[in-house]
């Protein structure tokens, strides 16, 4: 904990902003990234994808995005699978490689443009 003294509402706001991540995972988040972590997913490298997602969000200082894991979806041949839910639309990306993660986050999560070359399914 810092030892600064709070002297104004701005100081309070600063702490509020800098500590937002403390509870942000508890408020859900508008955008959700889901990584398939079934046995086949893990075998295909889903764990590295999840690590990369966390690292990229942290590097870009993005909050308000909930990261979830899920079990086997049944499309084992296309693992690792990564879903992005944004604006009520769910897009599934298949055979994701760690180096694809920054692209998906920049294009889809931040700017709302689906990365067509990796997308294998959509649902509203």
């Amino acid at each position: 904990m810092t030892h600064m003294k709070i002297k104004s509402l701005e100081d309070l706001k600063k702490i509020r902003e800098s500590s937002r991540d403390l509870t942000s995972a508890r408020s859900g988040g508008e955008t959700v990234i889901i990584v398939g972590m079934g046995t086949c997913g893990i075998a295909a490298g889903a764990r590295e994808i999840l690590t990369e997602v966390m690292a990229e969000l942290s590097r870009r200082n993005i909050d308000g995005v909930a990261v979830q894991t899920t079990g086997c979806i049944g499309m084992c041949q296309d693992e690792p699978l990564l879903d992005v839910i944004r604006g009520g639309q769910r897009v599934t990306y298949g055979r994701v490689k760690p180096e694809d993660v920054s692209l998906i986050i920049a294009e889809h999560v931040v700017n709302g443009r689906v990365v067509d070359k990796l997308a294998i399914g959509r649902a509203d």
Binding site: S18, S24, A25, R26, L50, V53
Partner: peptide, 9 residues
């Protein structure tokens, strides 16, 4: 401060 994807309360 790291971002935690999951919180266990």
């Amino acid at each position: 401060m790291p971002i935690y994807r999951s919180h266990i309360l």
